[in-house]
Structures are given as C-alpha cells and as structure tokens.
C-alpha cells in the first residue's frame, strides 16, 4: 500500500434520515421503514427494479451503499477482485426470518423471501450493485465495535488482498434499525480521517 488507509466517506441511516459525511442529505417521511426506504430510493433517481424485491435489511444496506458511493469514483480505480465489504450486525436476518416463518405457518413458503433469511444476502446485493468481487464477510455481534473490524480490514488492506473496502454496521429488526457504512482506502489527503478504531467508532456514534 502506497499510503496509510483513510476513511474516504461515510453514510449513516437512522431515524428515517440519511447522513453522508455527517451532513443530513435526506429526512424521510414519518411512517414505516418501507415507506421511508421508497422515498430514499426515489431521491436517488436511479432505476434498479431489484430494489423492490429486497427485504428490509437488504434495502437498508443497498441504500446506505448507494448514498455512500453515488456520484463518487471511490471504487472506480479498484479492480472488482480488490473491492471488499466487511460488515456486522446484531440481529442477523431475524426480520426476514419472522416474516418467512409466518409463511411457513401458512404452509406457503416463498423462495423469494427465504433467500433473505441469511444476513450476508444484504452484502451480496451491494456486491452485485457495485461490482465487489473480493472479500465479503458478515459478523454478528451484540454491538458495533470498531476495533476488531478496523483491525481485520487493516490486515486485508496491508496484505493487498483489498485495495478499497466498505465496512460498517447493517442492522434491522422489528425493534429498530441502523446503517453505518464507510469506504476505506489509501489516500494522501490529510483532511480525511485516518482509519483508526477511535475514528471509526466516533463516526458511528455521531
């Protein structure tokens, strides 16, 4: 790696609002998450019909990655095999699990929903959209702890396994949701925060 990795950009989605680099770019309607997600999707001005088939967790992740990367060239200089995504969440795919279980009880299980009963599918959707063909890993943890994630991604960046990566937290359950994604890669821009556990944890919390 030519220079130390820096946090290139962040996106946070919580309480029906989208923040990019800490700046609020969208405050959606009050109401359900799907309503907010639809508003956010339209705000992006993209045509991606698959979005409408996604479960809540995948929609949340898709939107966070879209707002993070839209109108940027953060991944453009990196070969697909050197792009990666490492994320964590607390409730795995429990929201889709419970919706799917309701179909099982009705003896009408749908494969289109069953596939979302795996938490890494949200990462898979982001990989498809953004041509990410390298490391993709989903950890489950009670809370977002930046230290192990930063350490893990740092070693992949230092080894050259990845050149530019997304990292963060994507959690959705009936009890709430939160998305936090960042892009990390080499940069000589001193204005960008260094890729350190403290910086990432602070960006998650603000």
């Amino acid at each position: 790696m030519l220079s130390a990795p820096r946090i290139l950009r962040t996106c946070s989605i919580a309480d029906h609002a989208v923040r990019v680099n800490g700046q609020r770019v969208l405050a959606g309607p009050t109401g359900s998450f799907p309503e907010f997600a639809e508003t956010a999707y339209r705000n992006l001005g993209i045509e991606y019909p698959k979005f409408h088939k996604m479960d809540n967790l995948a929609k949340l992740g898709f939107l966070a990655a879209e707002f993070l990367l839209t109108d940027t060239d953060l991944l453009a200089g990196t070969a697909p095999e050197r792009r990666g995504i490492v994320a964590a969440n607390a409730t795995s795919s429990l929201d889709a699990d419970l919706r799917y279980q309701a179909q099982v009880v009705q003896q009408r299980p749908s494969p289109a929903l069953f596939v979302y009963t795996l938490p890494n599918i949200a990462l898979g959707e982001i990989c498809i959209r953004h041509g990410i063909k390298g490391e993709n890993m989903l950890f489950v943890a009670a809370n977002y702890e930046a230290a192990p994630q930063v350490s893990y991604l740092d070693s992949l960046l230092a080894a050259g396994t990845l050149t530019t990566a997304l990292g963060g937290w994507l959690d959705f359950s009936t009890r709430g949701y939160r998305a936090f994604l960042y892009a990390v890669g080499a940069s000589t821009d001193p204005a960008l925060p260094a890729f350190s556990p403290d910086n990432v944890q602070q960006l998650f919390s603000t």
Binding site: G124, E125, C127, I128, K133, G134, E135
Partner: peptide, 22 residues
C-alpha cells in the same frame, strides 16, 4: 485462504465460475 463474491445473483451461482476460481 480467500473469500470472493460472484457479484452476479443472490441465489444462483456464477455463470462462469471465475470468482470461485479467483
């Protein structure tokens, strides 16, 4: 060891196998 992604389909494997080969 290594991990890769097809970036192709969420429930069907790569058409070419290139990503597992990677």
């Amino acid at each position: 060891g290594a991990i890769s992604n097809d970036a192709n389909h969420i429930s069907g494997p790569s058409r070419t196998g290139q990503e597992l080969a990677n």
